[in-house]
Design a protein around this nucleic acid. Structure first.
Lengths: 208, 208
DNA sequence: ATCATATTGTTCCGTTTTTCACAATAACAT
DNA sequence: ATGTTATTGTGAAAAACGGAACAATATGAT
C-alpha cells in the first residue's frame, strides 16, 4: 500500500491539471504534457500511474475523462466529504467562508468554538459550542476535522475529537501534535512556510 | 548548499521546540531531547546541525541560547522580515489579522487588492490598490509576498510582483505557478492537503 | 591521575525516491 | 501488408535521504 505523501500530492496535482486541460478542450494527454503542467518529469508521471495500475495507450496517451475517473476514485472524490472546523477565529472563519473547497467535493458543514460570542446556529455553516462537537461528530459520522484553535488548546482538542471518531486532522496550530493512534495528522504551519521561503530567498541571494 | 526543504523545516521545528524548552527553564539540551520534541531521531538532529556547522559539547549537549542564535541566523530571523499580502479576500484578510507571525519576526506591512471596496488606507495594516503594489515593493524593498488572489489572476500577478522585486512567494492559489527566474515559490494548497488527508484516512480504513 | 560514562560528530549502510533507458507495441503512413 | 514512429510501461541505475553504529572525547567520579 502506498504511504508516500508526495506521490499522493502529485496525483492531486495531476487531477487539477487535467481539469484545466479538459476545460481547454483536450480529450487526451501524454505523460510529458502532464509533466510540464505539474512540474515533474514524464517518467515520474508514468511511474505514479503505474503504481496505481493506471494505464494509457501506446502512442495514444491517456484519455482525460477516464484518467480523471480513476484519480478521483483513488483520492476519495467519488463521494462528498463532510468536514468540520474546530476554532472560529481568524483562520477558522476564513476557511468556513472559503468557497474553494466546494468544487473539490469537500463541504464544511459546521464550525465549533469555545467562545459563546462566536456561536451562531442560524448561519449557513453554523458555529456551535465546542462541547457539542463530540456528539455532532458521532451523529454525523464526521471523519475529517480542520483544527484552527490556539496552540495551547490544540493537543487536548485533537485528542477529544479523535476519541469521538475523527480519523484525520488538518492542523493549523503551529506546534507538533502528539501522534494519535488511528488518526492521521497533516500540519499546515504558515510561520514555518514563510521561514522556509525566507531561507531559500536568502540562500539564492547569497549565491549571486 | 542545502536544497532539502525538509531539512530547513526541521530547523524551524528545532527552533520552536528550543523556545519551549527555554521557557521551561532549560539551559542546555541533548540531541535526543530535541529529537523527542520534534519527532525525529537523534541522529537526524545531529546530522542536521552538522550540515550547518553547528556543534555542541561532548557529554554536554548544546547550549540552548547559542543554538537558537545560530538557527535564527540560518533562518534569517536576525532581522525583521517585512511581508505584503496580495489579495484581501477571505484568506488574505485572515492572514493580515493573524497575530502568529509577529512573534516570529515576520511583519505584514500592507495588503493589496484590485477591488476598490477593499481599500483601506487608514488601517493598521493598510489595504492599498493593487496597482500601487509595484511602487510599494520597490520603495520598501519588499522581498516576500503572500499571494492570496483568485487562481485566474495568480500567474499574472506573480509575474508582476516578481518583476518589481519580490524574491519569494507563498502562494495560496490552488494552482502551480510557472517557475519564475530569481523567485522562489512555496505553495500552500489547502484543497490538496485535505485531499491528502482523505486519501490516507480512507487507506487506513481499508487496512482494517 | 586514572577510569568510567555520556554524548557528540561522522561514516557507513539500507531504504526510498527519482531518473534513465529501452523494449514493447499501438497507431499511422505508404 | 509492411515499415516507421510515437509513446507507454517497467526494469535497472542513480541519487537523495534517513537511521544505526561507533570512534572520539569531554566531563565527572574515584
Amino acid at each position: 500500500m502506498i504511504t508516500n505523501k508526495n506521490c499522493i500530492i502529485r496525483l492531486s496535482r495531476y487531477k487539477n491539471a487535467l481539469y484545466r486541460l479538459q476545460a481547454l478542450g483536450f480529450v487526451k494527454v501524454f505523460s510529458d504534457n502532464l509533466a510540464d503542467a505539474v512540474g515533474v518529469t514524464a517518467s515520474q508521471v508514468r511511474k505514479d500511474f503505474s503504481i496505481f495500475g493506471i494505464s494509457g495507450n501506446k502512442k495514444g496517451g491517456y484519455q482525460i475523462d477516464l484518467l480523471l475517473e480513476k484519480l478521483n476514485s483513488i483520492l476519495g472524490k467519488d463521494q462528498l466529504q463532510k468536514v468540520i472546523v474546530i476554532g472560529a477565529g481568524h483562520i477558522g472563519s476564513a476557511l468556513m467562508r472559503y468557497r474553494g473547497f466546494e468544487k473539490e467535493g469537500i463541504k464544511i458543514i459546521a464550525g465549533f468554538d469555545i467562545d459563546p460570542a462566536k456561536i451562531n446556529r442560524s448561519n449557513v455553516i453554523p458555529v456551535l459550542p465546542l462541547d457539542e462537537a463530540k456528539g455532532f461528530i458521532k451523529a454525523q459520522g464526521i471523519k475529517i476535522a480542520i483544527l484552527a484553535v490556539p496552540d495551547i488548546a490544540a493537543q487536548e482538542v485533537s485528542e477529544e475529537i479523535s476519541a469521538a471518531g475523527i480519523k484525520g486532522i488538518l492542523n493549523f496550530a503551529p506546534l507538533r501534535l502528539k501522534d494519535i493512534e488511528g488518526c492521521v495528522i497533516n500540519n499546515v504551519n504558515l510561520e514555518i512556510e514563510l521561514e522556509n521561503l525566507i531561507y531559500f530567498v536568502n540562500v539564492a541571494q547569497k549565491l549571486k
